[in-house]
């Protein structure tokens, strides 16, 4: 009897001890809240995953305002033939549209032929400064940007950049379309985090040039300078938007007129700011765009600024 009592006592004590251990383990697994990273005066590590060379496309022409509406007349002798003709038209139209889009892409990419070698020689990482750089903003704030090393440093913001470059149809300018995601570098990331955290698509268009040969001169020095500037500018724009360093955007949308492919282009958006050369706005789809002002070339104050810089 004594043995049974001692045995059951030991079992109870053992069970209690196990419970205590479980509680301790739970405390160890609970996330410890980290002190928030500084967004202003913060450190931003630019990561360019999965890209060595430049992804470059030719600009596709957008549809123009037409003076007649679209519409299709179907034979409608009876309902069956009517529905068959619609289905047939839909099937044909899908393949025609796909073929047309591919033709348009191919035609657009023809503009890249003279620059193909130059593009292939340029590395994306070369376009970012390897050393850290402190950026001072117009409102007196600053932050530091550097190219991320492997393994990633865990003392700042992990800034993932996925850029695509687009050469204008007249070869007068290059636009970067960068998807920039900014995440806390101290937290190990998953694909889901990349989707759920700050992510912003930035369009930045270079000022137009009047001789397309300029891209190739001096072994492509100007080309590399512009593409590098576009990459860094798009990252800066994203960081400033993320850190709240951008001027507040207009609450009401307005019609923005800017220079694109040598012509006036019109887009509706929320004005964020203007420099002497560029207009910055948020498009109705939520992208941030920095585009050349229509009057940048005739802006004499602007010319003085450009000369001094």
């Amino acid at each position: 009897m004594k043995i049974i009592l001692i045995g059951s006592l030991l079992v109870m004590l053992g069970a209690c001890a196990t419970q205590e251990q479980t509680a301790v383990a739970q405390q160890k697994d609970a996330p410890v809240p980290l002190a928030p990273l500084d967004v202003i005066d913060g450190q931003y590590w630019v990561d360019l995953p999965g890209q060595d060379g430049l992804t470059f496309y030719g600009q596709q022409l957008s549809s123009e305002v037409s003076s007649n509406g679209a519409g299709v007349m179907y034979p409608g002798g009876d309902m069956a033939s009517f529905l068959v003709s619609i289905a047939l038209h839909a099937a044909i139209q899908t393949s025609v549209t796909e073929a047309k889009e591919q033709t348009q892409r191919d035609a657009a990419n023809l503009i890249l032929e003279p620059y193909r070698e130059l593009i292939n020689q340029t590395s994306l990482a070369d376009l970012m400064l390897s050393s850290e750089e402190t950026v001072d903003t117009d409102n007196g704030q600053a932050y530091t940007v550097g190219l991320a090393s492997q393994p990633l440093a865990a003392d700042g913001w992990h800034t993932v950049v996925d850029p695509v470059f687009i050469m204008s149809r007249s070869s007068d300018s290059i636009t970067i379309k960068s998807k920039v995601s900014i995440l806390d570098g101290r937290i190990e990331l998953t694909e889901e985090d990349l989707e759920s955290d700050f992510s912003q698509t930035i369009f930045f268009q270079s000022l137009p040039i009047y001789e397309s040969e300029k891209w190739l001169r001096d072994d492509g020095e100007y080309f590399r300078m512009v593409t590098s500037d576009l990459l860094r500018s798009s990252v800066d724009l994203a960081i400033q938007h993320f850190a709240g360093l951008s001027p507040p955007q207009a609450s009401i949308s307005s019609t923005i007129r800017y220079l694109n492919n040598g012509e006036k282009k019109v887009e509706r958006g929320y004005l964020i700011g203007q420099t002497c050369t560029h207009i910055i706005f948020e498009s109705l789809r939520g992208d941030i765009k920095s585009v050349p002002r229509l009057d940048w070339a005739g802006n004499h104050g602007c010319a003085a600024v450009l000369e001094s810089s």
């Binding site: 305002v65 019609t255 007129r257 019109v266 887009e267 509706r268 498009s283 109705l284 789809r285």
Partner: peptide
């Protein structure tokens, strides 16, 4: 909000 169509609307007005 139909951003694409809204943009087209203002492009047509322009």
């Amino acid at each position: 909000d139909f951003p694409g169509l809204t943009n087209s609307y203002y492009q047509v007005l322009e």
